[in-house]
């Protein structure tokens, strides 16, 4: 059975394009134009994944509100924000609502489907027995990366990262001591175009999350003007 993706986007053209791209990749798609219809539709027909725009018609934070409403009856539903709003504050508020990722427009359809695929893979792996899950585990000292569930733990504590953040940490930790340039990292984030500054922002947030778990965390080093590297 094809997985059901719900798209909430007030712009008809974009909504249709997302839907077309996802349908072409074999997903079932339900598209909504505003918060009330989306809430009503998803209540009756719960999707496997939801992609939300933040500004919905004349509601500035319609997407955030919708996310809260969805969490009320579907706490484990993977949610991706896809928005034109690119401020740190929006990112932080979006992720605080337990969204799985926060993407900014414009985004290539190819990368959108990659993400949707990845997220479904995570969902599936979470349902798999543990032995299989541990099969491809990557261990770097205190760092344990599970590529199937796309989860990371540091000194045994799970670190809650978004999809993009996970990809960055995975890329850095894959070859410790080797510098990942901004270009490399940009590829990893699977977004069309990412500024150095945006990458810095991702890394800052990642560090912060590690530091919350371990005050002495210093394993991600900035190589100014070039990129970052994972220290052994």
């Amino acid at each position: 059975m094809a997985q059901l993706v719900a798209i909430v986007e007030d712009d008809l053209d974009q909504r249709e394009n997302y839907a077309d791209a996802l349908v072409a990749n074999g997903y079932e798609v339900l598209a909504y134009a505003n918060r009330s219809s989306a809430l009503a539709g998803m209540k009756s027909n719960l999707p496997d994944l939801a992609i939300l725009d933040i500004m919905l018609e004349n509601e500035m934070d319609g997407g955030f509100d919708l996310c809260r409403d969805l969490r009320a009856f579907a706490p484990r539903l993977p949610i991706i924000f896809l928005t034109a709003r690119d401020s740190d504050i929006d990112r932080v508020s979006g992720l605080r609502l337990d969204a799985w990722d926060y993407l900014t427009k414009p985004l290539s359809m190819e990368f959108l489907t990659v993400r949707v695929n990845s997220l479904f893979r995570i969902v599936n792996s979470l349902n798999e027995p543990e032995e299989i899950a541990n099969q491809h585990r990557l261990e770097r000292g205190d760092l344990i990366i599970d590529p199937n569930s796309m989860s990371i733990s540091w000194q045994g504590q799970p670190i809650s990262l978004t999809l993009t953040e996970f990809w960055i940490v995975e890329a850095l930790a894959h070859r410790p001591g080797i510098v990942k340039t901004y270009d490399n990292i940009m590829q990893v984030t699977r977004q069309t175009y990412v500024e150095k500054n945006t990458i810095n922002g991702y890394v800052r947030r990642v560090r912060k999350k590690f530091i919350e778990a371990d005050r002495d965390f210093k394993h991600i080093e900035t190589v100014f003007g070039v990129g970052y590297r994972w220290l052994k």
């Binding site: 712009d11 053209d13 974009q14 394009n17 997302y18 077309d20 791209a21 072409a24 034109a84 427009k105 414009p106 985004l107 290539s108 359809m109 190819e110 069309t192």
Partner: peptide, 12 residues
């Protein structure tokens, strides 16, 4: 937003 329309349309 319109840029995203163009972008996604070109992709499709």
């Amino acid at each position: 937003n319109p840029l995203n329309v163009v972008n996604s349309s070109l992709d499709n």
